[in-house]
Simulated scan of single mutants.
Amino acid sequence: MAKVRISQIRSTIKRPENQKRTIKALGLGKINRSVEVELTPQINGMINKVSHLVSVTEL
């Protein structure tokens, strides 16, 4: 599997609760925080759900 770096670029203030929980499940929570994860179908689905709040870079 490919590895990707996910960085939060926008705030979760005034966002639906399911988007806030998705950001937490990805290991984010603050702006400019980044995590490196394997790109599985589950992670890809979470990225698509909050794509307007995060940036994704392939490693």
Rank of each mutant, 00 (worst) to 15 (best):
M1F: 08
M1S: 15
M1R: 07
M1V: 09
K3E: 15
V4D: 00
V4W: 00
V4H: 04
V4A: 01
R5W: 07
R5K: 15
I6T: 06
I6N: 01
S7L: 11
S7T: 15
Q8A: 05
I9P: 08
R10G: 12
R10M: 11
R10P: 10
S11H: 01
S11T: 06
S11N: 07
S11R: 05
T12E: 04
I13R: 13
K14M: 07
K14Y: 10
K14R: 15
K14E: 10
K14T: 07
R15S: 13
R15G: 10
P16C: 08
E17I: 12
E17C: 07
N18G: 04
N18P: 10
Q19C: 06
Q19N: 09
K20H: 06
K20N: 09
R21V: 10
R21S: 13
T22Q: 05
T22Y: 01
T22D: 10
I23A: 12
I23V: 15
I23C: 04
K24G: 06
L26K: 06
L26R: 07
L26Q: 06
L26S: 02
L26E: 03
G27P: 02
G27R: 01
L28A: 00
L28I: 09
G29M: 01
G29H: 00
G29L: 02
K30A: 15
I31T: 09
N32C: 13
N32D: 09
N32A: 09
N32M: 13
R33Q: 12
S34N: 04
S34D: 08
S34F: 00
V35T: 03
E36W: 07
E36L: 09
E36N: 13
V37W: 02
V37Q: 07
E38L: 08
E38H: 05
E38D: 14
E38S: 09
L39E: 05
L39S: 03
L39T: 03
P41N: 00
Q42K: 14
Q42M: 10
I43G: 06
I43Y: 04
I43M: 03
I43D: 01
I43Q: 03
N44A: 14
N44W: 07
N44D: 06
N44T: 11
G45S: 00
G45H: 02
G45A: 02
M46Y: 12
M46P: 09
M46T: 02
N48W: 09
K49M: 11
K49W: 03
K49I: 03
K49V: 11
K49H: 14
V50H: 04
V50F: 07
H52P: 05
H52Q: 12
L53P: 04
V54E: 01
V54M: 04
V54I: 08
V56N: 01
T57A: 11
E58I: 13
L59P: 08
L59N: 13
